[in-house]
Design a protein around this nucleic acid. Structure first.
Lengths: 205, 205
DNA sequence: ATTCGGTTTAACCATTTGGTCAAAGATATG
DNA sequence: CATATCTTTGACCAAATGGTTAAACCGAAT
């Protein structure tokens, strides 16, 4: 049961639902389990959110926008591009580290076939990628960075930051034979590695 | 129903089960659906594989080892390291492209909590990462590449190759506003991008 | 204190789902 | 052919699961 702060019933449900959905996925989550975790009756779940689908919709929507907001905004300050980049990587890795299972949850749900609510939410979210492209192109015009493809840059950054978190069980086992601590230490050191790689792709020689 | 070649019942089941499990995940998959896709009776499923769990175990085990085998072996030839690297990236991207949903399936199942069969299979698979480390260290000793951490190299390659496939729905929507063709073309061009990035991390200056 | 709205509960329901079983079909073996 | 073994099927079952409903509860306004 979750009771960190004084949460009203709706908040308690959303907290509990988030945890269950993130851990079990939409198909694996059980309404009873969510009710139990929220410390309430199952009927009350349906009183607040008519169906499992509606509850999932809400949870996914909130979780998704929380994470996505953090991605696109950070590059919007007036600082030096390399400083922004370094700050972003550090911040973002930190967020990912503290929310290990969120990216997996989102990516996993987005990949499900059929009438996919997650995809619908993604589409209706209208993320403006051109902001990032414009920032990058301005840097290029100003001669601060190489003439690179903003899309590749974006994908490279996300790949190097997110994949090691998402594929953690696999990598942890392959490389560290399951020793959890080792991987955490290793990940912390990767900040520089990632920054240097990205820097080398955009720096002018 | 799957009938590409003359498959016996067991093979038909495994083919069908793979498709359903990969698309729906272990929790979302339905035994009835698998039976239908295999063109057989549901009882027959249980005749061949006692339970859903056992069937999943088999499917995951096969799918996982097929994919993992392709990762570690390719570096074992006698060619120049950069040639091997380029070949690997090209080959691996090709495999990933043709099996879009396999990596997501594996990573997703490995991230599930509780008594996780996928993790058990991973652990019992005894992947020998030291082979890769030794190859890299030999190259370093021979002065062919920079003195880098083989683990970082490994993670970088996998991240850049796998993430764009796994996060496809997200990236496709954010960058290409859902236009499928565009992303496929873009991905094909990324081979060079990835190779160049990795090259820049290991090449001696 | 009574009424009224929102909130919470227990009991219940229909459907889905993984799984069983006995019997019928095949297929090989003597 | 007869028997034994392997394969396949349809009918069935128990548990799980999402969802409903009527009644109880509770705080505030009249």
């Amino acid at each position: 049961m979750l009771e960190k702060e004084i949460l009203n019933t709706e908040e308690k449900i959303l907290e509990a639902a988030k945890e269950i959905f993130v851990n079990e996925g939409s198909a694996g989550a059980r309404m009873q389990e969510i009710a139990d975790k929220a410390g309430i009756n199952k009927s009350l779940l349906h009183y607040y959110f008519r169906s499992k689908e509606k509850l999932f919709e809400k949870v996914f929507s909130i979780t998704f926008s929380k994470l996505i907001t953090k991605i696109l905004n950070i590059f919007e300050s007036d600082e030096d591009f390399f400083v922004k980049l370094e700050k972003f990587i550090e911040n973002y890795l930190d967020i990912l580290f503290k929310n290990r299972f969120i990216p997996m949850f989102i990516i996993s749900e987005l990949n499900k076939k059929g009438n996919n609510i997650a995809v619908t939410i993604l589409k209706s979210s209208n993320i403006d990628f051109s902001i990032f492209v414009n920032i990058v192109q301005k840097e290029i015009r100003d001669g601060k960075i190489k003439d690179i493809d903003a899309r590749n840059l974006f994908i490279n950054i996300l790949s190097l930051c997110i994949f090691p978190i998402v594929a953690r069980p696999l990598i942890e086992e392959i490389i560290f034979e399951g020793k959890k601590n080792n991987y955490e230490i290793f990940l912390a050191q990767r900040k520089d590695e990632i920054f240097n790689i990205i820097k080398s792709t955009i720096i002018k020689i």
